Simulated assay, not measured.
Amino acid sequence: MSRARFKSSDKACKTVFTVTSGTVFHARKLSFKKMVMAIWLSVNSVKDKAALQLSREIGVQFKTAWVMLVKRREAIAWRREDMVLEGEVEIDGKYACGHIRPENKVEDRTDRRLKKFQNMKRLCALALRERGLGGQTFTRVIRDEDGDAASAAVGDHVSRDAAVIGDEHGSDNDLAGLNKLNRVNHSKAYQTEDGTNTNQVESFFSRVQRAYIGIHHRFSLKYFDWYVAELAWRKDSREWGNDRQTFNVLRTALARPTSRFLCGYWQGNKPPDLIRKGDAAV
């Protein structure tokens, strides 16, 4: 048919469709050339891509570039569902978002490390990082770094034969009943005498911090989980070439069904909160 559309030859069907029907890019208006350009430019950025910059580079509105990037992040985040980490796995959490500006006078300032003074807009990105070449990174955004969330993540996405490496945080105490557990006390040393450390997961959190400060300047709480999941993919694919990264994202996006959260976003369709506590969304 005209405009690159197709019609089913089944007499009982006669459905009209395109090559992007039923995929993440369903109901697109961008040309294929600009879509592929946008994917290539985004994966070419080490610390993620700002929608405003992408809109200028490919000549589209900010809203068009933003939705496309978020759709891509949602598709990439699905890779975590069947992820099982092997070997040695490092675990840690990082709080982000919700910055509180300190008071001017010292006597008016509070210790924001105390729970009663914490900003409820700050969320914790829990990460499990598999050591070794080609290691994967599993992420989950939770309200607080607690034992239930850590146990749920390790129980669902870490092999029982794997060794888990954590720090002195109390949320890791319950992991000893699931896997072999090694720990390092960061208040005393970053690495123990026998070489136990969590440097690789800390390296991933450094990437998250650089994306926060240098690219986005803020993370929306509603989409924070997808941002972190994409940064984990960037960490895992950092040694790939641009062509492999581009085709991997394109293949992942076209293999996922139409987003029920983002298709028609600017017409009022909004996703639910993506914050997780333990194993249940809140």
Rank of each mutant, 00 (worst) to 15 (best):
S159M: 02
D156A: 15
A27W: 06
G241M: 06
W226M: 05
W240G: 00
D111N: 12
D161M: 00
H169R: 06
R244H: 06
C124H: 01
A253F: 01
G155A: 09
I91N: 02
W40T: 14
V60P: 02
R218D: 13
K222D: 12
K71V: 07
A27Q: 13
M68G: 00
R113Y: 09
S220K: 11
S45W: 01
E239F: 11
M120F: 14
V158F: 04
M35R: 07
S42V: 10
T15F: 11
K7P: 00
A189Y: 09
N197A: 05
A96T: 15
V24Q: 07
A189E: 13
V60T: 11
T20P: 05
K71S: 04
R122K: 15
K33F: 08
N199D: 06
D172Q: 09
K94G: 06
M83C: 11
V89K: 01
V89C: 03
I275E: 11
A255S: 15
A189M: 14
R28N: 03
F224Q: 01
N182Q: 14
G93C: 05
Q209W: 00
L128W: 02
D48Y: 07
L133P: 14
K105I: 07
R131E: 05
E88K: 12
S237R: 08
D279R: 13
E57P: 02
L262I: 04
V24F: 03
S9V: 15
G195D: 07
C124D: 05
C97S: 11
F62A: 07
E230V: 02
R244Y: 06
R260N: 10
A211I: 00
V282W: 11
V106Q: 14
T258E: 10
T18N: 14
T196L: 04
I91G: 06
G155R: 07
H26G: 05
F25Y: 15
L126I: 00
S187I: 02
C13H: 02
R122W: 02
K11I: 14
R183M: 15
I39A: 11
E88S: 01
L123A: 08
G155Q: 08
C124Q: 03
V43C: 03
R5C: 10
